[in-house]
Simulated scan of single mutants.
Amino acid sequence: MPPLVIAALGVLGAAALVKLLASESRRVNEALARRRAAEAAPPEPVTRLERDPQSGAYRPRAD
């Protein structure tokens, strides 16, 4: 094979590899962004409990 053909095949292979790596990188970054957005959601508010002296049960405090 002439050296030019071998060099062209090498360039085509490298271009295909770069395209594959770029698409995989985008896919992983999108998955990470979705996970970070889900984790960044505000946590549920904490409800304080107080004991009812008559029944002994714990109920949410009426603040």
Rank of each mutant, 00 (worst) to 15 (best):
S23D: 08
A33V: 00
A15P: 08
L4Y: 05
L32V: 05
P53A: 02
L49I: 05
P2Q: 10
V5Q: 07
L21A: 13
L20W: 11
A16S: 07
R48G: 06
G56Q: 06
V28D: 13
A14P: 02
A41V: 14
P60F: 04
A8M: 08
R59V: 12
S55K: 04
V5I: 14
P3N: 15
V28T: 12
T47D: 14
V46N: 15
A62V: 14
L12C: 03
P43K: 00
L4I: 13
A62L: 13
V11H: 05
L9V: 09
L12M: 09
A57D: 15
R36M: 06
A7H: 07
L21W: 13
P45Q: 04
L49Y: 12
P53C: 06
E50R: 15
R48I: 04
A41T: 15
V11Y: 02
Y58F: 14
R26T: 04
P43M: 06
S23K: 06
A41D: 10
V28E: 13
A37S: 03
A7C: 04
P2I: 15
P45L: 00
V18E: 03
A14E: 07
L9E: 02
K19L: 11
G13F: 10
Q54C: 04
A33W: 03
R51H: 05
V11A: 07
T47W: 09
R59K: 12
R36K: 10
N29S: 11
V11I: 08
L17V: 12
E50I: 15
P53Y: 02
Y58L: 13
A41G: 12
E39L: 10
R59P: 08
N29F: 02
A38L: 08
A37Y: 01
L49M: 15
I6L: 12
S55P: 12
Q54V: 15
E24K: 15
T47S: 14
A33H: 07
R51K: 14
Y58T: 12
V11C: 00
A41R: 14
E50S: 11
E44V: 09
L17K: 14
A22T: 02
K19M: 10
P42D: 03
E30Q: 07
V46W: 15
D63R: 15
E24A: 14
A33T: 02
V11K: 00
Q54W: 09
V5F: 06
R36V: 07
D52P: 11
A15C: 06
A31Q: 09
P3D: 15
A7G: 01
L21H: 13
A31E: 09
A16R: 10
A33D: 03
A7N: 03
P60V: 07
A7M: 03
V11E: 04
V28A: 11
P42Y: 04
P2H: 09
V5D: 02
G56H: 00
L32N: 03
E24R: 15
L12V: 06
R36G: 00
V11L: 07
E24T: 12
R59T: 12
G10M: 11
P45G: 00
E30C: 01
V18S: 08
R51F: 01
P60W: 05
